Amino acid sequence: MIKLVSILISVVSFNFVVSFGTTKAENQPQDVEIQFGDKAVAIESGQPVFNKGTKIWLSNPKKEEIKIFLNEAEKEIRSKKVELSEITKLDEGTYTLVVNTKNDEKVFGFTIQ
């Protein structure tokens, strides 16, 4: 009887470890994401408005080759995380960010004031 109980406990704990490890891996971001250092202060014409000096990062968890267009600036990136505010000086104005990956194209507009 003790052997049966210890075998059942081992099987249950193994299933828990496997399911927890799988869930943890599935929760990791896999897509290219845009992250802002500050919260938007307003919304104008459907676009978020950020204060001047807000840091903007592009997260690339798979380190895949992506091409970004930020208004007139064009850049190819393979890094895991890149600060977009270093690529081009973000003065006051409206910006359109286009991110091209192998499988997808994302367009995001925002304003700096």
Rank of each mutant, 00 (worst) to 15 (best):
S79K: 08
L70Q: 03
P48E: 03
L97Q: 04
F14Q: 12
L58G: 01
E74Q: 09
E64A: 11
F20M: 14
T101W: 11
T88S: 12
F20N: 11
N15P: 00
Q35L: 09
V17Y: 10
F69K: 11
L97H: 01
A25Q: 12
T88L: 15
Q30K: 07
K106H: 10
V5M: 14
I9T: 02
Q28C: 15
D31T: 09
N27Q: 10
T54Y: 01
T23H: 05
L97P: 02
S6C: 07
I9V: 04
G109Y: 01
N15W: 04
S6P: 00
I77K: 06
N27G: 11
S85I: 06
K63N: 15
V32I: 15
G46N: 03
F108W: 07
K39A: 13
A25Y: 04
T23M: 12
E74S: 10
K75F: 13
I68G: 00
V5C: 09
I9R: 02
T88G: 07
F20R: 05
E86L: 14
L70F: 07
I87E: 08
L90R: 00
F50V: 02
S79Y: 05
G109D: 13
S85L: 12
S13G: 06
E86C: 11
V32R: 02
N103F: 12
Q35E: 12
V107K: 09
G37A: 08
F50T: 00
F110G: 00
N103Q: 12
A40R: 00
M1S: 02
E64K: 12
I43R: 02
E83Y: 02
D38P: 01
T22M: 12
S79G: 09
T54R: 01
F20E: 14
